[in-house]
Design a protein around this nucleic acid. Structure first.
Length: 337
DNA sequence: CGGCTTTGACCAGCGC
DNA sequence: GCGCTGGTCAAAGCCG
């Protein structure tokens, strides 16, 4: 399973076309992109979320998805359609697709993670299967209601079924020497596991917020130890605890949890809007390209990676540092608006 | 003392 | 059925 993931990530790194389509489609699908990136991979406590720097967050009402931007929705986004090869993949795909925000153009979706990819692809093809599953689940629920006495086996089965219902995932790679990149949320590590065919262990983190069951896995790429592969699972049900939110910010509408809330950017200082616009439109076709992702902001070499990075906050005056993702993306002129 | 990490144990899924 | 692997749990320890 993770071998597949690694393979796909390698593909993303090696193949510009696939890479760009995968991540940009993940972006355009609305799906986990915001979930994954509404978290600044920079700055210890007190930093901004990545999406905040983009001028977008999950927690703004009346959000719209990337697809609501015509330029993004039509010409710039290549498609990458694959088919689920196993029943399990199809099931997961159906499950993930159920979490998709309603967008006008979701016939072909994918993600940087093969798991997420499997979850995302073939939405339409699996629609019927999804419906069947839902019916089955409804029937099971009805049966449970009719028969309140459940055996331990049934409980076990129920638990198993619940486990199978995975949250949509989204993985991305960041070149960093720091394994656990700050993203604006607070995480508690609950496990570490050696991974087959990799000398690097995989770490498991869970969002510390009580009602939030977002998880993330962090592992180093076997092929390139300087690359950290972060996989987010689920969506935050709360604002970033490290980001001060405007008083009028409402809890996220469930359907828009993965949407790209662009309207927010209209309320932001110009450089925020400009950043979002630059990254999400003109650079969108390359956004998922690993090398582009890695090099967009850096003029250069890997030595840039661990230096302190500073960004303007919403106040426009405070400076934060980071050791994570944004440097890989943000352009230098954005750092000095 | 609370919050976090570490780490061995446990469990479930999957392939053979 | 068995072994492997990924994912999670939970006790112990660490740290501010």
């Amino acid at each position: 399973m993770d071998e597949k993931k690694r393979e796909v990530i390698k593909m993303i790194k090696a193949d510009n076309t696939i890479g760009s389509s995968s991540l940009s489609e993940a972006i355009s699908s609305g799906f986990p992109f915001s979930s994954a990136f509404d978290s600044s991979e920079f700055g210890e406590k007190g930093s901004l979320g990545f999406m905040d720097l983009l001028g977008v967050t999950d927690y703004f009402p009346n959000t719209i998805s990337m697809f609501d931007f015509p330029a993004l929705a039509s010409s710039n986004i290549p498609t990458w359609t694959t088919t689920a090869t196993t029943k399990k993949e199809a099931m997961v795909s159906a499950d993930a697709s159920s979490n998709q925000p309603a967008t006008p153009n979701t016939s072909s979706i994918s993600s940087a993670s093969s798991e997420a990819l499997n979850e995302e692809r073939t939405k339409t093809a699996d629609q019927d299967e999804e419906d069947d599953e839902e019916e089955e689940q409804e029937q099971e629920q009805e049966q449970e209601q009719e028969q309140p006495k459940v055996t331990s086996k049934q409980l076990k089965a129920k638990k198993t079924n619940q486990k199978k219902q995975r949250e949509p995932r989204f993985a991305f790679m960041t070149k960093s020497e720091v394994d656990h990149l700050e993203d604006g949320y607070r995480w508690r590590k609950y496990g570490q596991k050696a991974v087959k065919n990799s000398p690097f262990p995989r770490s498991y983190y869970r969002c510390t917020s009580a009602s939030c069951n977002v998880k993330k896995r962090v592992e180093r790429s076997f092929s390139d130890p300087s690359v950290v592969v972060t996989t987010y699972e689920g969506q935050h049900t709360h604002p970033s605890p490290l980001i001060s939110r405007p008083a009028h910010a409402a809890p996220p509408p469930a359907a828009a949890a993965f949407a790209m809330p662009f309207q927010r950017s209209q309320l932001l200082p110009h450089h925020h809007y400009q950043f979002a616009h630059d990254v999400l439109s003109s650079n969108i076709s390359n956004f998922g390209n690993y090398d582009t992702l890695r090099n967009i902001g850096s003029t250069t070499n890997s030595a840039n990676f661990l230096h302190e990075r500073r960004f303007c906050t919403h106040s426009g005056s405070a400076l934060i540092t980071d050791h994570g993702l944004l440097q890989d993306i943000v352009t230098s002129n954005m750092l000095n608006p």
